[in-house]
């Protein structure tokens, strides 16, 4: 039907969220942090999740990352219902299928860059030699091969976040989940990180970036806005800002 080179294939859903609620029981009061959310994330999506504080952004982030489970509704991760999983099963999903990037990097201060990147593979039970090989490869993707034996405190903020990205990538996850990845970086360094995200997206990865900055969200291909525990809007980005241009 289409005459323009690429055919639009039906993309596989990674995450399907149906009518999800998350209620916190704070003793005397109940806080309804998420109040009936429907959200699909497809393979090779690049989604920015936005919203003011208190909108349920963090709660959604925790649910998406399998750090928490919904109190009602269904959350299918690659077709499996996360709601019924026990703690160890959730840990395994996080380990093998989700890559986390945090605002404050969360690197282990006493471990070398290489060991930080290896860590998810340790928890996956991979042998030492294979681990080191994979970690080195992944460090190459973020351009830090020469920093493998440094410690985090010997690196700049941008470099640290790149190590964290390598750590998120090392297990070939189904989705990369970044929580305010540029929040602790100056805007130039932040743009560097977005360049890496752009290249990961183009390489076929699925990315979810939680942010409150419009400048960052504009790099994504789709923006989901939350307000008061509901999805306010879910729209494609008309003209994504090419990260490379922002560098100049």
């Amino acid at each position: 039907m289409s005459t323009t080179g690429t055919t639009a294939r039906a993309r596989r859903p990674i995450i399907e969220i149906r009518d999800v609620e998350r209620v916190y029981d704070l003793g005397k009061i109940y806080v309804r942090a998420l109040d009936g959310i429907d959200l699909d994330i497809l393979e090779n999506d690049y989604v920015a999740v936005m919203g003011p504080s208190g909108s349920g952004k963090s709660t959604l982030m925790n649910l998406l990352g399998c750090l928490d489970t919904p109190t009602a509704g269904h959350y299918l991760f690659e077709g499996e219902d996360v709601a019924g999983m026990d703690d160890d099963e959730l840990a395994d999903i996080r380990n093998r299928r989700i890559g986390f990037v945090f605002q404050s990097f969360n690197l282990l201060p006493r471990a070398t860059v290489l060991r930080n990147v290896e860590l998810p593979l340790v928890y996956a039970g991979m042998g030492r030699e294979e681990r080191i090989e994979r970690a080195r490869e992944t460090l190459g993707i973020v351009g830090l091969s020469d920093r493998a034996h440094h410690r985090p405190n010997e690196l700049s903020g941008g470099q640290r976040q790149r190590v964290a990205i390598a750590r998120a990538l090392v297990n070939n996850p189904s989705v990369i989940l970044a929580d305010e990845p540029t929040g602790n970086l100056d805007s130039r360094t932040g743009e560097d990180i977005m360049v890496i995200f752009e290249s990961l997206y183009r390489a076929g990865n699925t990315l979810i970036v939680v942010t409150h900055e419009d400048d960052i969200a504009r790099h994504a291909r789709r923006v989901v806005r939350l307000r008061d525990g509901r999805i306010e809007s879910d729209e494609p980005v008309e003209r994504p800002a090419p990260a490379e241009n922002a560098l100049r």
């Binding site: 990352g65 160890d88 986390f100 945090f102 969360n106 998810p120 928890y123 297990n171």
Partner: peptide, 16 residues
């Protein structure tokens, strides 16, 4: 505590 959170996010089980 934060390191524990990080390790758990990266796939460490409770037993670990």
């Amino acid at each position: 505590t934060r390191e524990i959170g990080t390790r758990r996010a990266l796939g460490a089980r409770r037993g670990t």
